[in-house]
Nucleic acid binder design. Structure first.
Lengths: 328, 328
DNA sequence: TTGTAAGCGTTATCAC
DNA sequence: GTGATAACGCTTACAA
């Protein structure tokens, strides 16, 4: 690789002058610039990004840590961050945390070790105090799930409102016994969606029945078990509210042939082409990712500016067939 | 941040000794080591990864470039690479190329600029000579699609065999007019799958009819258009062979209600829970990613060893309902 | 306008 | 066994 030194030697100027020319510093005589540019060209100079990064103290990179990059929801967030980052000559360091809260700190810390310029995080932990001092060193933006125990920017969906919408819709279709199916209440999304569900029940004058709350769904097996338990409840549910797309995916194979209405918080890749087609609360992960990336970039560009910490994005109900199975 | 200098000053040794201790160099007196270790601890020394990286000349990072990280197929590859990389204290720089061949060179080059230690690439171009000199500088491993115009490692699926399997299966279910639906023949996967399809037809004594080849499917609209054209062909198809999962996703909404058998090369997230359930040629993207990552790491660890360039992974047919609609 | 010198934090060389 | 010293390639003072 040719360095600035090499160019300087050939052009008969100092290394610094090459640096000036390359970086567009105006304090260079046109003729000098001309000469240096020519040599730059001839020698196919490419800056050593590692050196620049070292000097700058941070990499032109945005770190992304999400539970699972294979989940299209998080994939869409990652992709949007990547696209916005690319527009600013940045790359993205992506990593999947998995669902084990214990491992998150280690994984994210190892990401932070690489000195990214910013971090976009969808945490699987109930709180994120492990981030500690990092929060002062680089912009950290939470997506999908707001932080607990630390202060940082977040872009989340309206879990409360969305859950109310979905539940109210099922109620509107005549359901009176509606189950809530979810994964872990330690996730803010799940707990807030449960709150929204309860609010909608209350608003309709329906009692909240703890027996109709099924948690711990993390795969098809647990989904099936949850369903079986629910069906044995006295006054079994005629409808399900699934708290996220992942849960819905696990639930679907078992639910689709049952006379159970279903509404999912979170879209699925082929939701509209399932049989029956799936009614969902539609989120916009690409938008979340875009906004998060922009916030990171804004904070880098204007470190002293003040920003709104919590941004909650509207969600909308996309009504399809699965909420209408009123033939229990 | 405390540096080796700081530690050296406190411990009363030279910086180099601190380096030796930290890196486990045996040529240090036990007592010196003891003292340094203590200070290392007290000052909570953490190495500046940027400096190490700069010194090393390459980042402890594996670059991943795929058409679209949101596609679960490529997401699974990326995740597997990430997991294997993490086991070796490496991170992954992930980027989505998109479907435009023109942009690939720029995007991948910008990734390479960051000096990753290796690159895992699923190219959207018909040839990859733009990689040029990079191929001598870091291990580049192609996934899903073998390289053209350059020599590099690749881990691909058995496109030919899989397409034969799928086509033969449809033939076995009595279909005689089988259409091939795909995206771009410039992709080696698509062209080889077309070859396999033709081979299976030939083996069964069926004529190849160019009218039954529908290409250019890149979204739902083009999928619908392709379908409509196919249905107008003289002697219309009673079955479709879809050349990849993405094409199948676009095709599905229009196909599912038609009396058309369908077999897809490539699994979909809920293939078994669609109605009808989808017969697929099952690939194993996680395995592809794992093998690719390992190859990168192997080449880094043993630069002079020789490796098998092309690895073709077996695929298997997962027969479900969609291939059995014999009621045209 | 241009150049010199120093420094980022680490590792490699080579004396001692 | 240990420690000066240099080097990686770039940018930031500061001089000239």
């Amino acid at each position: 690789m040719t360095t600035m030194r090499d160019v300087a030697a050939v052009a008969g100027v100092s290394q610094k002058t090459v640096s000036r020319v390359y970086n567009g510093d105006p304090h260079v005589l046109p003729e000098t610039r001309e000469r240096v540019l020519k040599v730059l060209e001839e020698l196919r100079y490419t800056p050593n990004a590692l050196a620049t990064t070292f000097r700058a103290g941070r990499a032109p990179v945005i770190g992304i840590a999400v539970p699972d990059i294979v989940d299209p929801f998080f994939g869409a967030i990652a992709r949007a961050v990547d696209e916005e980052a690319a527009r600013h000559d940045m790359s993205t360091l992506v990593t999947s945390i998995g669902e084990d809260p214990e491992r998150e700190a280690e994984i994210v810390n190892s990401l932070l070790t690489r000195s990214p310029s910013g971090l976009v995080l969808a945490s699987v932990r109930p709180e994120q105090s492990y981030l500690g001092v990092w929060l002062d060193k680089l912009p950290v933006v939470f997506v999908d799930r707001a932080p607990t125990g630390v202060v940082a920017d977040s872009f989340t969906d309206d879990d409360l409102g969305g859950a109310r919408l979905a539940t109210a819709d099922l109620i509107g279709h005549g359901h009176r016994r509606i189950a809530f199916v979810g994964d872990r209440l330690s996730l803010p999304t799940t707990s807030r969606r449960l709150d929204g569900y309860r609010q909608a029940l209350g608003a309709a004058g329906l009692a909240f029945d703890p027996d109709l709350v099924a948690l711990g769904v993390s795969d098809r097996t647990s989904a099936r078990a949850a369903l079986e338990r629910l069906r044995l409840v006295e006054g079994p549910p005629s409808a399900l509210f699934s708290s996220n797309g992942r849960v819905t995916m696990f639930l679907w194979p078992a639910v689709k042939d049952l006379p159970l209405a279903l509404c999912s918080f979170g879209d699925l890749p082929m939701a509209d082409s399932l049989t029956p087609s799936l009614t969902v609360v539609d989120q916009d992960p690409a938008r979340v990712g875009l906004l998060a990336a922009r916030r990171v970039l804004d904070r880098l560009a204007y470190p002293s500016r003040r920003y709104k910490r919590k941004t909650v994005l509207e969600v909308k109900l996309v009504e399809r067939q699965s909420c209408r199975l009123e033939n229990w």
